[in-house]
Design a protein around this nucleic acid. Structure first.
Lengths: 135, 135
DNA sequence: TAAAAAAAGTTGCATATACAACTTTAACTC
DNA sequence: GAGTTAAAGTTGTATATGCAACTTTTTTTA
């Protein structure tokens, strides 16, 4: 039946590029990328979270996470004790809240644009990857 | 019904990281990344293809494509007239063939590991993104 | 066909990402 | 509690990626 077995990795990377572009656009007004906004929102939701924890949850290599975090700090959104848990500055908290508003509206819109079949499809795929491929 | 609307972009990026890691591993023996192997295979399948064509097909920004292509060339896998169509050198062709063998086995294995529900889910999602979100 | 417009490709700059090696911090064991 | 081990975090190096501005090539049109 699977006569056409396209490249799973290639397809995922393409989809990530396309969707990331869409999300990045939405955050240009705030001067952040989607990746940065995402981290800010995670830290907002869980103040004091460790890099290692985010690293596992988001499946980002620890050295990449280290640099992402340093970038947030350089921009004044994190307090200076990043080795013992991540905390937003006041400016960081305000930005995180604005990002969340943007994110919520956009994510719902994309969800709606793609429709239930598509989003259910991604959910099923995602759940399978998480249970079968991530230790 | 959609009580939990997770972040589509975040999830896709995570999945791309995880699956890319898996594919990258498979190509370390050949000294190429999955991204490079993928380009080589595309060019092998369509000698003379233009950067702009690959750029559209893979949804990679043209400047990124330009650099990816230059890297392949620097490694001796592309002939020197990259501005008028991409052609593999003999070494490039041999490498592309080896990569295809690796890719085919791995892609089938991942397809099998994830199972039909998952892969169908990705297909449905992917088709929807392509028809609804890509101009 | 020459000029103008559009498309293709490149380069400067910046972020996102990974692997390997290293340093620092935390935990465990005796 | 000192020493060892493990976990966390950082830095060097390299690829992958995007945006903006620029150059080159191709196509259109007058």
């Amino acid at each position: 039946m699977n006569t056409e077995t396209y490249c799973i990795a290639g397809r995922l990377r393409m989809l990530a590029r396309v969707i990331s572009g869409r999300y990045n656009e939405a955050f240009t007004g705030e001067g952040v990328t989607f990746a940065q906004a995402g981290l800010l929102m995670h830290i907002f939701a869980q103040p004091g979270v460790r890099q290692a924890e985010l690293s596992k949850r988001l499946q980002i290599e620890k050295s990449a996470m280290s640099r992402d975090v340093q970038l947030l700090q350089k921009n004044g959104w994190l307090t200076d004790n990043i080795r013992s848990g991540l905390y937003l500055t006041e400016e960081g908290r305000l930005l995180a809240k604005r990002c969340h508003k943007i994110w919520k509206a956009l994510n719902q819109q994309v969800w709606a644009e793609l429709g239930p079949d598509a989003t259910l499809g991604l959910t099923v795929f995602s759940d399978n990857v998480i249970t079968k491929l991530i230790s």
